[in-house]
C-alpha cells in the first residue's frame, strides 16, 4: 500500500470512526487497554447464531488505536466466528511481520508497515485484543 493511501485510510477512520457509540446492554462488553500507554477502549459485540451482527466502541485512544478499531469493526460485520478468528490471526501476523493473507484484510492493510514503529504495534493490536476477549466471552457463555 502506498504511503498516501495508508495515511488517508488511517486519518479517515480516526476523524470519523465507524460505530463509535455506546451499545445496549445485550451486547458483550470488554475493556481493552495498553499498559504502556493511555489507550483505553470499551468494545461491544453482538453475535447471533455465531455471526457477528454488530460491533461498537467507546473510550479514548490515539489515532492508530482508534482507526484500527474503526477498520476492524467494518471488517468483522457479518462474519462468522471462525472467519473473525481467521482475520485476527492474519492481522496479528501482519503486525508481527509473519506471513499473512493480504487478500482478506482490506483497509487494515494500512498497518502493514506499523512494525517499523515498534511502540505503535500495540496501538494497532489493541482493538483486536479486545475482540479476542469478547469472542472468548461469547464462547464461554454459549
Amino acid at each position: 500500500m502506498d504511503p498516501e493511501t495508508r495515511r488517508a485510510i488511517i486519518m479517515e477512520n480516526y476523524l470519523n470512526p465507524y460505530n463509535r457509540e455506546p451499545a445496549p446492554a445485550n451486547y458483550i462488553k470488554v475493556n481493552t487497554n495498553n499498559e504502556s500507554c493511555i489507550d483505553n477502549l470499551d468494545i461491544y459485540l453482538l453475535i447471533e447464531d455465531d455471526i457477528i451482527k454488530d460491533v461498537k466502541f467507546t473510550g479514548e485512544a490515539c489515532a492508530i488505536s482508534t482507526s484500527a478499531t474503526s477498520i476492524m469493526i467494518k471488517l468483522l460485520l457479518g462474519k462468522t466466528i471462525s472467519e473473525a478468528q481467521n482475520l485476527l490471526t492474519n492481522y496479528r501476523n501482519m503486525i508481527n511481520e509473519l506471513p499473512y493473507d493480504a487478500e482478506i484484510l482490506e483497509e487494515a492493510l494500512c498497518f502493514d508497515e506499523i512494525y517499523k514503529q515498534q511502540n505503535r504495534k500495540n496501538c494497532a493490536l489493541l482493538p483486536w485484543k479486545g475482540i479476542e476477549k469478547a469472542l472468548a466471552k461469547y464462547q464461554e457463555n454459549k
Binding site: 490515539c62 489515532a63 505503535r120
Partner: peptide, 8 residues
C-alpha cells in the same frame, strides 16, 4: 486531538 498523538 488525543494527548498521546500530540506527544507522538
Amino acid at each position: 486531538i488525543f494527548a498521546q498523538d500530540i506527544a507522538v
